[in-house]
Each structure stands twice: as C-alpha cells, then as structure tokens.
Simulated assay, not measured.
Amino acid sequence: MNSLSTPIQIIRPETIEFGSGTIAAVARFAKAKNAKRPLVIADAFNAARVDVLALPGDLSVFGEVKPEPDIPNLEKALAVARTARPDLVIGFGGGSAMDLAKLVAVLCTGSPTLADVVGVDKIAGRAVALVQVPTTSGTGSEGGIRALVTDPATRNKAAVQSPFMLADLAVVDPDLTMTVPPQVTAATGVDALAHCVEAYTSRRAHPAIDLYAIEGIRLVGRYLNRAVKDGTDREARSGLSLASLYGGFCLGPVNTTAGHAVAYPLGTRHHVAHGLACAVIFPHTLAFNMPATEAKTAAVLQSLGLPAAGTPAAAFDHAYRFCADLGIEMRLSALGVPADDLGAMADEAHAIRRLLDNNPRDLGRDAILQIYHAAF
C-alpha cells in the first residue's frame, strides 16, 4: 500500500456536470465548441433517444455498440467516423459505448491503428472533442482514461490507457438511468462496488484514492438495494451514479486487481455481462484477499452496512448474501459457463498480469481454478 508521500496523479475529466437535468450541458458544450459534425457512439437503445442530447450541426450516429465490444465492432464505428469526419464525439450509454467513443476519438484522425496504441501511453494526441454521457451506473468509464475491447482471435481484452482519452466533459445525469432494469441495475452496481473495493485493497492503493473508494462503497451499500427495488427512486439513482463516477476515479491512478482478472474470461469466452461476471466473482476474491487486507476488508463490510467478519469464510458469506439478495444469479453453471472450460479460463485469467500484479495477495493459476469451481 502506498503512503501519503508517494506521488500520484489524480485524473478526472476537465469538467463534470452531475445531477438531474444536466443532460442540457451536452448541447451547451457543443455550441460553445462550435461543433459542426457531432458523432454519437451508442447502443441501439440509446441511439433511439439521441434527441435528448439536442446536438447542433450535421449529426451522425453509430448505434450498434455491442455488450463487451470487440475489435470488429470498433472497426465498424471507425468506418462511420471516417465518413462523418466528426469534430465532436459523444459516448452515450454504458461502459461499452463510452470505451468505443474514447477509441474512436483518438483513432478517427491520422494513421494509428488499435494495435499501435494497445498498452500504456502510446497515444500521441487527440484532434476532436470528447464528451461522455453514462446511462448506467457501473463502469465509471466517463471518468477514466482506459478503454477495453475484446480481440476475437485470442478472446482476451485489449487495454488502451492514455490521458488523451479523458473526456473534455462528463455529464452524469442520474435521470438517464431510471429505465435500467432491476437485474442490470444490480449487476452494474456491483461492478462499481468492485472498482472501489479492488482499488481500496490493491497493492497500489493510495490514501488520496481511498477517499473515493470508501465513499463509493458506502454509496453502493446505502443505495443499490433501493434502486433495484424501485428504479424511479431518484435519490438512490443519484447515489449510484456518484458511486460509479468515484469508481472511475479509482481506475486511473490505481486500477482493479484479481476480481476483474478472474471475471474477464466469463465475458470474453461466454458472453456473461461484465457487471454480472464481477458480481459472481466479488465474494470469492474479497475473501481470498482478506488475510492480506484484514483491516480494509472490515472497512469494506462496514461501509456496505454488513456485519463484521472475523474470518475469510464469514466475509465471503456476507458479500455473497449481499449480491444474492439483489437477485443476482451467483452460479456459473446457471450462466451457461461449461465445466470443461474452467481450466482454460483459469489459464487466461492468470495471464492478465496488469491486474493480478496489483492484487494484495498472490493468486496462482490453481487458486483461480478453485474460485471457478467454488462459483460453479
């Protein structure tokens, strides 16, 4: 864990508009920038309601963002962008739409390809403005500098990280999340929780980021169940939107750990939604890491409003019940993951060193396989 004297860069969008009705800030920004050719990157649902953005100029829309987008999906978006020649890109949707918007914004001009920029700080700049508008409360992608797409050849996620992918404006209007169904609300809420918990317990954890992490955890504990039970609860939706944003703040300087590494193969190999995959894995990695993070695990449980746990088994039980009580299916077998693929999944997860090396406790391939079997 890093000390207060350890240097850290806290990365946030230049401007953040937060609260009910702030969607109007998108049009104000576009007009202030004199945008003539805005391009919206969205899934089909949000593509059908782009009118709420009230964008000026010759509007183009790429409305085919897939859950867990892959490289072909990115290439289709880039083809639209190269025809539209946008001066403003808007990510409008969940993390998938916002991640593709980041990549489109940095790749739609010039000659770099995705292969040229995979990794850390390989982007030279960005020529178009970028706005992010989340419509779910989970990824926090509106506040971060990373984008992920799946390579279908390897079934692994290609990660790009650069401050040039940070939004000029993030508009977090909780009213846009009111139509999210209960099951998606639950899973994406646990994704936000996982971002905060993994950053808080990481080897790279830092007190300046712990503030966002522990408050994000508290907000999820207070509001997630309320939002699942009543999607029109504006206070609960606002609390979750803030928790998600705080989770995004955690990702830039610290990033996630084993929870996400173990969850990724569920999405890339078996198309389990990312938030759901994180929820299934969350109790297992929380309990696994507890011997190395006992005080912080206690703080996590307390912030969630859960009972204290003297043992990893008790921590697992409390976290598992928290997720299951939200209506989340916690068994891999019920999510269509075949038992004969668990070994290959463990191999893939164990290779994600950029995350596993952050984990507070070494997690070997056999231990990952044990987690999969326990979750099966």
Rank of each mutant, 00 (worst) to 15 (best):
D191W: 00
E215M: 04
P112S: 13
A97P: 02
V65N: 00
M290E: 06
R353D: 14
K229A: 15
I368V: 15
A292H: 02
A84D: 02
G19Y: 05
I145S: 11
A44N: 03
A79K: 08
A334T: 11
V131Y: 06
T135R: 00
P283W: 05
F288E: 03
G216C: 01
G19C: 09
V26S: 07
H270D: 04
V272G: 01
L240D: 08
V220S: 08
S5I: 13
A236L: 08
G91E: 01
E75R: 07
I23M: 10
I8Y: 03
L306R: 02
A30E: 06
G140E: 00
V128M: 06
L224G: 11
I123H: 07
V50W: 08
Q183N: 13
L114G: 04
S162K: 05
R237Q: 13
T232E: 12
G267N: 04
M98D: 00
A54F: 08
V220W: 07
F29L: 09
V106Y: 00
I209M: 01
D366L: 15
L53G: 10
L107T: 01
A205M: 01
T177Y: 02
R85P: 06
S141Q: 02
R218G: 15
R126V: 10
P13I: 00
I23C: 11
G239P: 12
G189V: 12
T185G: 09
